[in-house]
Design a binder for these strands. Structure first.
Lengths: 216, 216
DNA sequence: CTCGTTGGAGAGTGTCACTATCCTAAATAG
DNA sequence: CTATTTAGGATAGTGACACTCTCCAACGAG
């Protein structure tokens, strides 16, 4: 398959494919002559994944590169590769340590994880989800700065929902064949179910709001 | 309160506050002299909300302006204002109608909403969550293009979790005093709980991945 | 042989969220 | 009452990001 055909089959312009090749998001094709290269189904699949991560999952090109690299790193086991990939995902601004709301938020987050039996070290050492922990602290701090209650009791239902969702996610992952496919699936599902989840919540809120507030 | 004090109390630079004033995210202060203006607690509160929406909720300045405007629009009821605000939230690329995966995704989304008893018109007419519906379709299409199963059966647990979360959200909203406070709360909670939810899911996935895959 | 096409490289584009500079007028120190 | 600092407003500039355009030499179909 030539560049033009890869472009036609993926719906991505040749200019953008060249850009991804340059940025290392797509491995180079097999060089046929000095001015031609051959691409295969693997390239098509990878390209679709990259596109989905960037366009639907809204992750920056640089993060996508790191995520892709983690997927292929043979030196790590499944859990480590997934952790490294998750680590590379965008996660907003770091908590502002000069703010006392952050300190309180950190205590709330710790108490929540304690109650759920989640491992803090899971969240603090590589490879795992420390950025997600920072993201949680930042968000809790912002909410409490605005005066909204955001303590362990309020957060627990969200965390329980997250637990159930994670179980669904990994059930889906385990149904994939090889470990390589499983890591790819885990990353793709982590990223691409985020908009699914957010849009479902917004739709559910609209529904619930209609039920409670319509006409008020 | 002068600009400098507003800046000090909010932690936002005077340059940025001036920028927000220009962009209409913050109503002008009361003019004292030709070169001085006076700001009150309302400005501080608004500024904190804007900052949280932009930095934590990652919504663009232009969307934030629309959201803020919807909050204050006295012509609409609670449900309508919330719908208008939600409508202004970022929601990724529109579904690609030239793609047949989109068509299938739309059928899946419709079937899911049917099964949950959610109202499609709720999602399609203003004021409500049509962008969220488009976002859902786009994400489902991307997943199925990558070959991941994404039918009503797989989606239902996510939707059920979303329903429970929406109930928690609106319980919190109803605990706020005046209708004006309630709309603001609804928007703030919609936007600011998104990172909470996403980070909790990532943490839960890390936990579940450790349980299942560590060492594999 | 010729003329459109291909792959590669570098520069350019549009958007976004600020940020730096400038200017005038007002407050304040001496 | 002058001199110096500071405030507010307008305009232009910055840096990151995700492409997108332009150019060029080498293929290759007719």
């Amino acid at each position: 398959m030539r560049l033009a055909e890869l472009s036609a089959r993926s719906g991505v312009s040749t200019a953008t494919i060249k850009f991804y090749l340059r940025e290392g998001l797509l491995h180079p094709g097999r060089r046929v002559t000095a001015t031609q290269a051959d691409y295969d189904e693997g390239h098509l699949r990878r390209l679709r994944l990259v596109r989905a991560l960037i366009q639907v999952g809204r992750i920056p090109v640089s993060s996508a590169r790191e995520v892709i690299a983690a997927l292929q790193d043979e030196r790590m086991d499944l859990h480590q590769r997934l952790g490294t990939a998750t680590w590379a995902l965008p996660h907003g601004p770091e908590p502002d340590e000069t703010d006392q709301a952050t300190e309180a938020a950190r205590r709330t987050a710790d108490a929540l994880m304690e109650r759920l039996g989640w491992h803090r070290d899971n969240a603090c050492d590589r490879p795992s989800a420390a950025p997600a922990y920072g993201m949680l602290v930042t968000a809790i701090a912002a909410l409490s700065r605005l005066g909204y209650p955001c303590d362990v009791e309020h957060l627990e239902p969200y965390a329980r929902a997250a637990e159930r969702i994670a179980v669904s996610d990994l059930d889906l992952v385990e149904r994939c064949g090889t470990p390589d496919e499983q890591v790819e699936a885990a990353v793709a599902l982590t990223v691409l179910y985020e908009p699914v989840l957010l849009s479902l919540r917004r739709l559910a809120e609209a529904e619930e709001s209609r039920r409670r507030f319509d006409g008020k």
